[in-house]
């Protein structure tokens, strides 16, 4: 309870700081919107020509993309502190975090709150509404819960990847750009249901980084391709991934404390 209050206190300060630079905030939000709008245009024109891919229709792909985009925006909004962790380590700010009697994760989550991701979120919501409107899904409560479970699992998954990235920053700050594959890459290519990319990518996205748990499997239930409601619970599997990434993070901190920077 106390932790939540402290977190909200952090967020209120971050938002007040952001609002000191309103113009910059609006422009960043606009940029976020435009970048994902371009990806949407790409999908639009491809479907204007092909009308379906691997049996998925335009509105189904839009739903898939919208949910993925929301998950990513939420994770970026809340866990941006980990995404920007290289700077925190480079400028020695992590020492300050360690001399405070609160958990480092809480302090880092509180240090950043990217409100500008609202631009991307807006794009996602528009597509989501369009997708709902045009797809043939009967919106019963179990389908609504499926979407909520996808949002939860996906946000947790992306936040965990950010956490692993942050943990790697304790070891090196060089060449960590490759982690973009797991974050930006997943956002970019998660627009299509993963089976579109073939069975090999399906395996990688299940056993190495479990994207399919928050995208392909629950989507099958959402789109009515299976009646097995277990698929709707798959996103909770990412909790295991989150625990693993937490261990990596702990290991990173203990390395930092023994090796210095």
């Amino acid at each position: 309870m106390r932790a939540i209050r402290l977190y909200l206190h952090y967020i209120s300060i971050v938002i007040r700081s952001t609002m000191e630079y309103k113009a910059s905030f609006l422009l960043t939000a606009m940029g976020q919107f435009l970048v994902s709008f371009n990806i949407f245009l790409g999908i639009y024109f491809l479907f204007a020509r092909f009308s379906e891919v691997k049996g998925y229709s335009y509105s189904e792909v839009l739903l898939c993309f919208a949910i993925m985009l929301m998950e990513f925006s939420l994770a970026e909004c809340f866990a941006r502190g980990f995404d920007a962790f290289a700077g925190i380590v480079r400028e020695g700010q992590f020492d300050r975090i360690l001399v405070r009697p609160q958990s480092p994760i809480l302090q880092i989550l509180g240090s950043k709150f990217e409100l500008s991701r609202i631009g991307r979120m807006l794009q996602a919501v528009v597509m989501f509404v369009y997708g709902i409107y045009h797809s043939n899904i009967l919106w019963t409560w179990d389908k609504v819960l499926t979407v909520i479970s996808m949002l939860f699992g996906g946000t947790l998954l992306f936040a965990s990847i950010f956490l692993i990235y942050a943990a790697l920053c304790f070891f090196t700050l060089d060449g960590l750009e490759f982690m973009n594959v797991l974050t930006d890459g997943a956002r970019e290519y998660g627009k299509y249901p993963i089976d579109v990319y073939g069975s090999r990518i399906m395996k990688i996205c299940t056993y190495i980084v479990p994207y399919t748990l928050v995208q392909y499997y629950p989507l099958q239930y959402l789109l009515g391709r299976t009646d097995n409601p277990i698929y709707a619970l798959y996103p909770f599997g990412t909790i295991v991934f989150a625990l693993i990434s937490f261990c990596v993070w702990r290991f990173g901190i203990s390395h930092y404390q023994s090796a210095g920077s």
Binding site: H9, I13, Q93, Q107
Partner: peptide
């Protein structure tokens, strides 16, 4: 290195430290 929040009044940083 500063531990104060750059863009908000100093007293706000202090209030956060009270909670921390």
């Amino acid at each position: 290195r500063s531990q104060l929040w750059w863009d908000v009044p100093v007293i706000d940083s202090f209030a956060l430290l009270k909670d921390i």
